[in-house]
């Protein structure tokens, strides 16, 4: 475990906490894409199939449980909680899941580390995570007033991905045989998707103005 990896995981954890804070305390999910949250739940469910079979470390297992538990509870809150679900604007969140799920599944069947159920599901989860933010980014563009917590949530998610890239660079130079093309290419694509958002996030921060993405 290196500092970039730990910082990346902590940033990821922070993004989840920010979202849970918004949902639990403010009882609102305004500006949050349920589609993206459902895709994340699917990402973790398919990636962590090894949770009970391969023990890596207590840290690893704990984090997996946190990401699984939080992603499914966020989806539950947005869909079913009496007050929270009222702030969900379905008409704005129109992205179709299967536009992302089907190509990722096909790609995972073609490009994987090993042609086994677990490995294909793992590759699928990596590809799906790379594009899962798209419904959220589309929703942000449609939202005239992006509240601070939503902006911070997306920023933290993007920062987590950028830190993972630094982690891979570090590991490549410090470990022997550390080469993972599937995660590297998908991770790079995923981080690039945030580039536009980052630009406007920093602009709004620099000029002390409310975040707004051009339509």
């Amino acid at each position: 475990m290196n500092i970039f990896r730990l910082a990346g995981d902590m940033t990821h954890l922070a993004s989840v906490l920010v979202l849970l804070l918004k949902i639990h305390t403010i009882k609102s999910c305004a500006g949050i894409s349920l589609k993206t949250q459902e895709l994340y739940a699917l990402v973790f469910a398919t990636r962590y199939l090894d949770i009970f079979t391969d023990f890596i470390s207590l840290y690893n297992t704990t984090m997996k449980l946190i990401f699984l538990g939080s992603s499914f509870s966020i989806v539950w809150y947005i869909r079913n909680h009496k007050i929270v679900s009222r702030s969900y604007d379905k008409s704005q969140d129109t992205f179709r899941h299967y536009f992302l799920i089907i190509p990722c599944l096909l790609l995972a069947l073609l490009v994987n580390e090993k042609f086994t159920f677990k490995e294909v599901m793992w590759a699928f989860s990596i590809y799906l995570e790379a594009v899962a933010i798209l419904p959220q980014l589309v929703l942000l563009q449609r939202t005239r007033n992006i509240d601070n917590l939503t902006g911070q949530y997306v920023f933290l998610l993007g920062a987590y991905r950028a830190l993972y890239i630094l982690n891979w660079i570090y590991r490549y130079f410090t470990e022997t045989h550390y080469v993972h093309w599937i995660t590297w290419v998908s991770g790079l694509v995923q981080t690039l998707l945030y580039a536009d958002f980052f630009y406007y996030y920093f602009e709004s921060w620099k000029n002390n103005k409310k975040l707004q993405l051009p339509a």
Binding site: R5, D50, I56, N60, Y164, N167, H177, T183
Partner: peptide, 10 residues
């Protein structure tokens, strides 16, 4: 041979 730790990232 040590078995490679598979997918140790989250």
């Amino acid at each position: 041979l040590l078995e490679e730790k598979h997918h140790d990232e989250l």
